[in-house]
Design a binder for these strands. Sequence first.
DNA 1: AATGAATGAGACTTCATTCAT
DNA 2: AATGAATGAAGTCTCATTCAT
Lengths: 219, 219, 219, 219
Amino acid sequence: MSTQSKIDAIDSRGARQDQRRTESRQRLLAAARQLFVERGYHDTRPQDISRLAGVGHGTFYLYFSDKQACFRAFVEQAQAEVDSLIMKRLAVCRTHEERVYGVLEVSMDFTKANPGVLKAAWAGHQLMSSDDSGSATSLSIVEQWAERWAEVITRGQKAGLIWDDYDPKIIGYAVLMVTSVVSTGTREAWGDKEHFLTNLTRFVLRGLAAPGAGGALSS
Amino acid sequence: MSTQSKIDAIDSRGARQDQRRTESRQRLLAAARQLFVERGYHDTRPQDISRLAGVGHGTFYLYFSDKQACFRAFVEQAQAEVDSLIMKRLAVCRTHEERVYGVLEVSMDFTKANPGVLKAAWAGHQLMSSDDSGSATSLSIVEQWAERWAEVITRGQKAGLIWDDYDPKIIGYAVLMVTSVVSTGTREAWGDKEHFLTNLTRFVLRGLAAPGAGGALSS
Amino acid sequence: MSTQSKIDAIDSRGARQDQRRTESRQRLLAAARQLFVERGYHDTRPQDISRLAGVGHGTFYLYFSDKQACFRAFVEQAQAEVDSLIMKRLAVCRTHEERVYGVLEVSMDFTKANPGVLKAAWAGHQLMSSDDSGSATSLSIVEQWAERWAEVITRGQKAGLIWDDYDPKIIGYAVLMVTSVVSTGTREAWGDKEHFLTNLTRFVLRGLAAPGAGGALSS
Amino acid sequence: MSTQSKIDAIDSRGARQDQRRTESRQRLLAAARQLFVERGYHDTRPQDISRLAGVGHGTFYLYFSDKQACFRAFVEQAQAEVDSLIMKRLAVCRTHEERVYGVLEVSMDFTKANPGVLKAAWAGHQLMSSDDSGSATSLSIVEQWAERWAEVITRGQKAGLIWDDYDPKIIGYAVLMVTSVVSTGTREAWGDKEHFLTNLTRFVLRGLAAPGAGGALSS
DNA sequence: AATGAATGAGACTTCATTCAT
DNA sequence: AATGAATGAAGTCTCATTCAT
């Protein structure tokens, strides 16, 4: 065997193993996601996750140092997913109306496709034992989203489109809470999507729009 | 001993026992409240509650059929407390502004006096095992509060004070979410109470007020 | 029920419970002793100890914070037992010969009555994981015994009975090691007790006796 | 390629492979030695040994049938090492004094150079599970060393240099225990080497020397 | 009514060993 | 020969609940 082919062989073996590693982790994470959402943190055992993923009990601990680490990974994955979708949508929005409606729609679509995931991710670490030294990470996603709305509001104030007697941080947080309604998912009977989203969008925009803005927020 | 005095004696003993019964239950409930808030449902053991209450471990099961029953009792107590405070406050409000501001202030004061309690009660049964046959109870308080806002909105619409293109259920829920900001309690740094409450109140009112209403919502 | 009889009742109940507590602990400790000696630390499970003691699995943890704590308790008990026997014997010894022979005999008798216990106690914490913060306790018994021999030697030197070119600490430790031969117990075929103990006693005494002492060590 | 050179090539490859085989085994054994001494048998995993040796986890089982076999190999290696050193030293000793001092010095030097190894090897299989079918091997080294001292004593008795009322087996074991003091290693504060060894040597010699021997044991 | 010792199912995690590559 | 991902039996410990006193 030539030196090159030996290297190739090693590379190829390494690559295959890496793939297996990644695949196992993905399967575990997918199983964890399903079970954490269906049953909650405390009613999901590492064993259940492993079985659903189709791997042995011990394999779980090759990829997560413990159950909490697995849950953190799930939360982070879910948050990153939604975040990415929202960012993509916001990139193509020109007006505040589009932004509000866009965020609501993305959140709602995600919730429909992944029932409970957003709620679980939102609840985040609250479910775990209280010694969260690492809560910084999980909390930050809420903080982060609130902060984004705050920035949007600040820019709107500078453009004279949004009431300038608002404290952007506070109102940013308030807007975030309104948008969270769509992922609460307790009610499937809120009428159709269009109806639901239009209502919420109107409420937010009217709450924000400065008197002189006219329909500017949505134009 | 006359028949009457025998009856009196029994009554008195019964009364004393009832009082003791009630007293032990109260002490257990108070301990449960403290621990459920401090540590959460899963990190609180019946044993801990009993010890903090100063009664024997077994006594716990004289007053609660199991741990879940105790938690339900805590949630109901906390919700009833806040509910009562809110109802009292609403009774003296004449305008929507007063109502919004009032609910926010009551919630905030309660949160300050009982840190974490409202959040825990809000989270409710989500923390418990997923077989929520009893979710009806706990869910209802959120549903109930949302429903109240919906009624307020409906009345406002009839009076021409609130946009009549709103679906009261949806906007009622949205208003509720905004008011829940005050009990999230993550940020102690939202400026002073006045500043904070004024901001939220303005946002809600401006979101609600029909164009022709002028300042009518607050007058 | 009179106040006095009530107190009596409580006392009696408390006494009975205390007795039960003590009894359970004793039974667990006896079972632990048997199993730790028979199988060693790592092949003995808390479950085995509980079963042998005739109590439930969980009861074990009412009396010992964990497996290590149980083992420590066993070691300390065994050491204290031997120590007490040795001290009693030494109290009635007048000559060095009596002392050496006495310690050997006591150790040997104890080893015969409790095979393996002294060896296990001697080995002490070495069997447990290496993070012995509490090794002070267990080590000290060996240190303590060596120290006792050192004191005996020092006194003998002052009386001119023992070579004064000895470092008492070193020779004290050496004597201790010789006496430990009897508890090693690997050989049951060391001849009869008298033969065995006489041999060891002679060796130690001849090693200690100063040239001018004559038979003074034993007279 | 000629037939001869082909054979050479094969030979050379075989030799290289043998060397590699041996090399991997040596590295594993060295790693095992370090870890067994540092952490003890039960806190050392085959995985740890492999990693420290710089080979894959599975490679361990190419060279040792299981963990116990590896431990046995370690013990035997360590014992053989010390044994060889002692034998070499004894070969140049002419008097009993030189022999006692020599064994002590060799043991001490080895202990200083390999802290803990002798103690671990001494403890031998006691750490492993109780089914010592192979205890013959490990026990024998202690038995062997005791037997050697017994032979020395027997010869001394025949030459009239050692008390003839001694049972050589018993006193041989006793001498061995004294020499084991140096490898206990608990005390680094036994004064300097010269002081320490001189003390122990004197004690042993005086314990052995027959009355008529004069200084013959050391001359 | 009150107590707290007792229980044992079950949770999480480790680790010696195997096996496909 | 070498690798390291995979395995699952087994270990330690917890905790909601019961029951004799």
